[in-house]
Amino acid sequence: MSGDGRPGDMRPLPAVPGERPPKPRPAPVPEPEAAEYWKAARDGRLVVQRCDDCGRHQLYPRARCLACGGPVSWVEASGRAVVYSYTVIRQNYARPFRDWIPYVVALVDLDEGPRVMTNIVGCDPEAVSVGMAVRARFEPVSEEAGIALFEPA
């Protein structure tokens, strides 16, 4: 269990004497081309790459547009998305994840187009469904990075 016990609440439990302290959510070591992406999430914003030539949006961050090879710039995304697929993880021996079980891992399609891996939080795992509308919320994980989680819209 974690947080206040609500499924999807991944705040770490307060330390209990004799127990190992909870492990924090892992933080990325940002690649140079992705620093802006992680930093924006640290600041509570979701950004995506937009092609200067063809206008297509993409994640994860790449050096060029996957569709046409054009140069890309960062633009702010709406944070709105729909669940493409999801699973409820009920077995994972690795910390900190095992402390979260059961938790929802999902692929969500942003309104702008890109698909991202995430956790669905703020609701019972059984309440998640394919096609469900969700919105981003953010969690800082280091000085230079935050991550976007999603919750029911």
């Binding site: 994640l59 999801y86 077995q91 994840f97 891996m117």
Partner: peptide, 29 residues
Amino acid sequence: GGGGAAAMAPGPAIYDALWGNTLVGNYAL
């Protein structure tokens, strides 16, 4: 297994590695 070394994932593998997904979880999706 899976995800234990999430932050150590090489290069672009980091993007799907922070969420506690497992090998089984990928196939479950």
